[in-house]
C-alpha cells in the first residue's frame, strides 16, 4: 500500500518467514545447479573458440557414469527440498481445533467476511493477532482465490464447495488482500485489506461493529423462515431426520455408505439434498440451491453446528 518500492514483501506471520527461508534456500540451489552450466559454457566458448589453439585431444562423446551422476545428484538435492516444502504444506492444510472460524463468501467482485459473533464486513478482514484463524470459504459464482501475500498463502474459492485456509498472524498491521484467480472483468479490483489487530483491539472492534446477533442465531431464524423447521422440527408431520447433534456425527447413507457430517456435507444436504440421502428417508427434501445464497447457507450451517452438542435424537 505504500507508494515506495518494496523489494521484500511484508510479513505478517511466522510462517511467512519460513516460506521466505525456503525460497531463499531454493534460490541458492538454483544458483548452484545453473552455475556450472553458465560458467562452463562461457569458458568453453572462449577457450575452444574456432581458430584458437587449444588442447583438443582425448575428446569424449559419451560417458555413462558422468551422465548418470549429473542426473541423479541434482535430483537428490531437490528431493530434500521436496520433503521440506511438502511438510510445510501439509501442516498448512490442517488447522488446529481451537481456531477461530470465519466464513468467507466471494462473489464477483467482492469479499464478504462473517465473524462467528455476527460481525460482517466487505473487502476488509479483521483478525486478532497471535490466534489461529480458520477461514471457511465458498463462492457465489465463479472461482476466486483468496491471497494474502504477507501470509504467503492463498487458496482457491470454489462455488458450492467449502475450501479452507488457516494462519496465525502475529504482527499487527494492515496488509493487502487480493483475488488471485481470474474471475472476470474486475478481477484486478477484487482487492481488500487484511487487518491484524492486537486481541484487545480486535475485541473492541467486534464490539463496535454493532452485532446484535451471532451467525448461528441468524441461521436459527432462517431455519424457521425458510420452512426447514416444518420438516426437521420436533413435531413435524414429515419424516425427516432431526438435525440436533448431526454435525460431526457419522451418517449412514442410502446405499450403505457412511459419511462424516462436516460443513461440506451440511452445505450439500441443503443445496443438493439428493446427492447423499440419509438412510431410511425418502429423498423428498427440495433443493435450496436456487433459493438462497452462500451467506445464508453458511448461517444455516453455523446454526446446525451450534446444535451439535444437543445429542443426536432418534428420529
Amino acid at each position: 500500500m505504500s507508494p515506495s518500492i518494496e523489494l521484500w514483501p511484508p510479513m505478517a506471520s511466522e510462517y511467512a518467514g519460513r516460506v521466505d527461508l525456503l525460497i531463499a534456500s531454493f534460490g541458492a540451489l538454483v544458483a548452484l545447479l545453473s552455475a556450472p552450466v553458465f560458467i562452463l559454457m562461457a569458458f568453453f566458448a572462449v577457450r575452444y573458440r574456432r581458430g584458437r589453439r587449444a588442447d583438443r585431444s582425448h575428446r569424449e562423446d559419451r560417458n555413462v557414469w558422468v551422465e548418470v551422476s549429473w542426473s541423479l545428484i541434482p535430483f537428490v538435492l531437490v528431493l530434500g527440498f521436496f520433503v521440506w516444502s511438502t511438510k510445510m504444506f501439509l501442516d498448512q492444510r490442517s488447522p488446529p481445533e481451537n481456531a477461530l472460524t470465519l466464513t468467507v463468501v466471494a462473489k464477483q467482485w467482492m469479499w464478504k467476511f462473517q465473524h462467528p459473533e455476527g460481525a460482517r464486513e466487505i473487502d476488509e478482514l479483521h483478525v486478532p493477532a497471535g490466534r489461529p484463524v480458520r477461514l471457511t470459504m465458498t463462492s457465489q459464482d465463479v472461482i476466486h482465490s483468496l491471497y494474502v501475500p504477507a501470509l504467503r498463502i492463498k487458496q482457491d474459492v470454489l462455488p458450492d464447495t467449502y475450501s479452507q485456509l488457516w494462519f496465525i498472524a502475529d504482527r499487527p498491521g494492515v496488509y493487502a488482500l487480493r483475488c488471485a484467480e481470474y474471475c472476470g472483468t474486475d478481477h484486478s479490483e477484487m482487492i481488500g485489506r487484511f487487518i491484524v489487530q492486537r486481541p484487545e483491539d480486535y475485541a473492541r472492534w467486534l464490539a463496535r461493529s454493532g452485532t446484535d446477533e451471532g451467525l448461528a442465531e441468524r441461521g436459527g431464524k432462517l431455519f424457521v423462515k425458510l420452512g426447514c423447521s416444518g420438516c426437521h422440527g420436533p413435531a413435524s408431520p414429515v419424516r425427516a431426520p432431526s438435525l440436533a447433534g448431526l454435525y460431526g456425527s457419522v451418517v449412514p447413507l442410502e446405499g450403505g455408505r457412511v459419511v462424516r457430517a462436516d460443513e461440506q456435507y451440511l452445505h450439500d444436504s441443503i443445496m443438493l439434498p439428493n446427492k447423499d440421502v440419509a438412510a431410511g428417508y425418502k429423498p423428498i427434501m427440495p433443493p435450496f440451491g436456487n433459493l438462497i445464497g452462500e451467506e445464508e447457507v453458511s448461517q444455516l450451517v453455523a446454526w446446525i453446528k451450534s446444535q451439535a452438542d444437543a445429542g443426536r435424537a432418534q428420529p
Binding site: 519460513r18 516460506v19 525456503l22 525460497i23 531454493f26 527440498f81 521436496f82 521440506w84 516444502s85 511438502t86 510445510m88 504444506f89 498448512q92 482465490s145 491471497y147 501475500p149 504467503r152 498463502i153 492463498k154 487458496q155 488471485a180 484467480e181 481470474y182
Partner: peptide, 12 residues
Amino acid sequence: AMLAIDVHVHDT
C-alpha cells in the same frame, strides 16, 4: 513444483 512455494506464488 515445491508445494509451499507455489502456494505463495501461484497465479502471480
